[in-house]
Computed example of a mutant assay.
Amino acid sequence: MLPSVFSERLFDNVFGDPFSMMTNFHGHGHGSVFGKHGKNLMKTDVRELENSYELDVDLPGFKKEQVNVELDDGYMTICAAKGVEHDEEKRGQYIRRERSSGECCRTFYIGKGLEPKDVSARFEDGILRISFPKAPAEKEPEDRRVSIM
């Protein structure tokens, strides 16, 4: 077991996930504002029902006003942004500050046929619940062979 300092492994930077830098470098995934643990934000459960899909997205510490959901060309992007309030009246010197401000986003492909009116969303107790209908299944051609003349 690796040593732990403030509940972070000492050698995370050396033995961390080599692909996490690529994700942040290309602008996909979670922003670096939330540090190396940004990938732990916005954990999502996706359920398939008979006629729809449901997503439950964990957004602890965020308020409804700080969450935004957009549809664009078949992709649904969920972003949550917040800032840390600094109280000028507080006294004392911080020894450690772990709360930060910034934005985290996730994008899901949900199909091109959906409009914002087709998607329902509600935010309760730090969980964003989204529901949207399944796109109609595309019919496959009965015969895939091409006739040669």
Rank of each mutant, 00 (worst) to 15 (best):
V84P: 02
V67P: 00
R96M: 14
Y94N: 05
F62K: 03
K82G: 02
S52Y: 10
D58R: 04
K63I: 09
E50K: 11
A80K: 00
V84E: 02
N68Y: 09
L59E: 02
R97A: 12
Q66D: 06
Y75L: 11
G83N: 12
Y94S: 04
R47N: 09
E54I: 14
Y53H: 14
K90R: 04
F62N: 02
L55V: 06
Y53L: 14
I78V: 04
E65G: 06
V57K: 02
K82A: 06
G92D: 00
N51R: 13
E98A: 14
G83K: 11
T77R: 07
L49Y: 15
D45S: 13
E50R: 11
D56H: 14
K90F: 05
N68A: 09
L49E: 14
E85T: 07
E54T: 14
N68H: 09
R97L: 12
D58F: 05
N68T: 05
M76R: 05
D72N: 13
E70G: 10
D87G: 04
K90N: 05
V69A: 04
L49S: 14
T77L: 11
V84F: 06
L49W: 15
E98M: 14
R96Y: 11
F62C: 06
R97M: 10
N51K: 12
E50T: 15
R47M: 14
D73M: 15
L71M: 13
V67Q: 00
Q93G: 05
E54H: 09
M76E: 03
E88G: 03
I95K: 11
V46N: 10
E89I: 12
K64H: 06
H86A: 04
R47Q: 15
K82M: 06
D56C: 07
H86Y: 09
H86S: 08
V57I: 12
K64F: 07
E50C: 11
R97S: 08
I78C: 03
N68K: 07
L71G: 10
E65I: 08
D72L: 15
L49G: 15
L55S: 06
K82I: 01
K63T: 08
D58W: 01
D73H: 11
K64D: 10
V46D: 05
E85V: 03
L59G: 01
K63Y: 04
D58T: 07
E48K: 10
D87L: 04
G74V: 08
K90V: 04
C79E: 09
E50Q: 15
